[in-house]
Amino acid sequence: MDGKKVLFVGLGFYNYDSAIKATLDEMGYDTVYATSLVDLGVTGKLFKKLCLGAINRRRADNRVWQNILASRTDNDIIFVIKGENLTRRHLEYLKQKNPKARFVLYLWDNLDKIHNRDILLPYFDKISSFDPSDCLCHKDFFFRPLFYQKKGSGSASYKYDISFIGEDRPGRYRFLKKVASLLPSDKNVYFRLKSSVLRTVIDKITGHRLCNNLKLPYDEFCQVTDSSKAVLDIVEENQSGLTMRTIEALAMGKHLYTTNREIQNAPHISPSSFTVLDVDKPVLELGKEGGQDAGFYEYYSLRHCLSDILE
């Protein structure tokens, strides 16, 4: 892109930021990176439990401020993903130090979950979102689904008949128990719901063994997904966008069982590669095949995604 200077403010999730920066560099951008993710450590968790959120917010604000102060100025593009920890002070400074820059925001979450949205949105020249419902409500938003990184091994053999890996969200544990109770006992299943220590202990005592309080590393997530015949997806409340795990499962050729009805309208996804489940009365017929055509892999590639967002 003729060496245009990009300040990329990422969200620090798994290895996605490094993959995005590397792809921007491959596309010809001159990219520097800053993160808006703040790890406040043990003291941050303690303050949160003690309802001292204001202290955490001040600490987060100062750490992000130091990241921004250390970043390059006079960029051509300020590219922000989510930006939930950016304040008016941060954004005003970026505007002041990058007066000719085009400000581009990509919402990697549904808008209701971004607490600073009223401050954030007015600063950006272009806003794209992975959530089609948000794009319908905000006519100035551009719809752009997420991307995949890995295609999988292509092996016909598999270890698990179905797997699920995800964060504990309202309704997920109940639905996961319901699905587990429907599966035949001879099926090999890998269900891992990242939850609190308390819920994990109770879950084990009651014999369900669906929860784990430790986050699964990205490479292990990919390994489990690649070793699965099918993948279960449980959409969050008030969200219609396809998650990264969903797209990566499809890219690995897995059949997807999902509660997200919006997948039926998603571009370039083979209708035979997914089954939409009823939240109240799910019916799982395991053994179905996955697989996508070349159009899927082109459209959902990281390069194509970034091109759409930054164009």
Rank of each mutant, 00 (worst) to 15 (best):
S272H: 12
L183T: 12
I234T: 09
R58S: 14
V32T: 13
L182S: 07
F274Y: 09
L86N: 06
L46E: 10
F221M: 13
I309S: 12
P184N: 05
D30C: 11
A249T: 01
I234L: 08
Y190K: 02
I205L: 06
A251H: 06
K95V: 13
S195P: 02
P132M: 00
G10N: 01
R174K: 15
F274G: 08
L50Q: 07
S157V: 15
I77G: 03
G44M: 00
N75L: 07
D278S: 04
D112Q: 14
S273F: 09
A249Y: 02
D203R: 03
N15Q: 10
G28T: 06
G241K: 08
K150Y: 13
T200Q: 07
G28C: 09
I55Q: 03
P184C: 04
L310E: 01
A266M: 05
Y218R: 15
E248W: 07
M252L: 11
D2T: 10
G207E: 01
L107R: 00
D25Y: 01
G166V: 04
D25E: 11
I309Q: 11
V279D: 14
R174C: 05
E262T: 08
P122K: 00
K194V: 15
L256W: 09
A22V: 06
F296V: 00
L7C: 02
S272Q: 11
Y93H: 09
S185F: 13
S301A: 10
E84I: 07
D17V: 08
D203I: 00
G171E: 02
W108S: 06
L111D: 10
H138M: 02
Q223K: 14
R174Y: 11
E285K: 11
L182E: 03
P271H: 07
V197T: 12
T243Y: 05
A294Y: 13
L302Y: 06
L46H: 10
P122Y: 03
Y33I: 08
F191K: 02
K95T: 14
G171T: 03
A70H: 03
L214Q: 14
G12M: 05
N116H: 05
K178I: 04
N188I: 15
P170T: 03
E311W: 12
V9S: 04
K288P: 04
P132T: 00
I114R: 07
D203P: 01
L277Q: 02
